[in-house]
Design a binder for these strands. Structure first.
Lengths: 154, 154
DNA sequence: TCAGAATCATTCGGACTCTGAATGATTTGA
DNA sequence: TCAAATCATTCAGAGTCCGAATGATTCTGA
């Protein structure tokens, strides 16, 4: 490349995705605040709703957070009666988390709030753009189990 | 509405942008770590490079953070000799921040790292999808009043 | 069968980031 | 000239998250 643009950073997808993502999360956090939820609580419920995973360690893996954080998030969701925590009879070390009816209702409410926020934040997203976002999220989620590039100081 | 998608949240742009943005920021943070920079340091430099703003209070406004945080970020960048801090002679309450040559070089390096990260982050995307993503980020950024991305003709 | 290694959840301490309330310096306005 | 406003700075503390113990349970091989 010849003379480089003075602000190459700002033209990178990673950087701008980060900035926009932070704004989006702040917006979403404000919308769900009244329900005593934070974005990560919703994230946990979303993973649960997907139905592929139920133990806390697996949750931590999919969400990319420490197991100890899942404990705190699950504690809170249990207090809200949004999830049930039951020891797996087949392996009593595991806690099996399941969404309660109330949890599903809460999640649906968050869905409505999120889409309302979309109207403000990403009003004119074309279906193609939505598809790209979805595709990226799916593929990145599919990369779980790779060397944790995010927090590897070993 | 009839039966709603079981996971409406996950189909909202705000939520997905938040998740992807967090991953993108983590990735970027890892890449610039060796230069003793965090994403917010780069963010400050990006705003400075845009050239519309120079005092710390203005910086705080554009970045959407507390003025006291700008102090800390600027302290560090000054220690790295990436910026200069000079009292505005016309108003000695103000600190005028300017990128040094080294700061510009650092920023350029971060740009390369960011674009390299793009390659990994969007590895599975087709060029068409990439273009859609870029266009979408442009429009979203404009909508949020962020500094416009310079067109990259590398 | 049984002791030791591995696995899962939990607790706890602490690192890190960020904010908001003082404080000090300077400028502005009446 | 003096009071109010403005900018930068410091500081204490809230909030979030991780990693290292700990305890409980399961798995393994001899």
């Amino acid at each position: 490349m010849a003379t480089m643009d003075p602000d190459t950073v700002n033209s990178s997808a990673v950087f701008r995705l980060g900035v926009l993502g932070a704004m989006a999360t702040d917006l979403f956090a404000n919308r769900i605040e009244a329900h005593e939820l934070k974005p990560k609580h919703v994230g946990l419920m979303v993973v649960l709703a997907a139905g592929r995973v139920s133990s806390q360690l697996e949750l931590a893996g999919v969400m990319g957070v420490a197991p100890s954080l899942v404990v705190a998030l699950a504690d809170h969701l249990e207090k809200l009666e949004a999830i049930q925590r039951v020891r797996d009879p087949a392996d009593r070390r595991r806690q099996v988390l399941t969404l309660t009816d109330h949890g599903r209702a809460l999640l649906a409410t968050c869905g409505e709030l999120a889409h309302a926020a979309d109207a403000e934040f990403a009003a004119d997203l074309t279906p193609a753009e939505s598809a790209v976002l979805t595709g990226m999220l799916d593929r990145l989620a599919a990369r779980q189990g790779l060397p944790p590039a995010a927090t590897d100081h070993s």
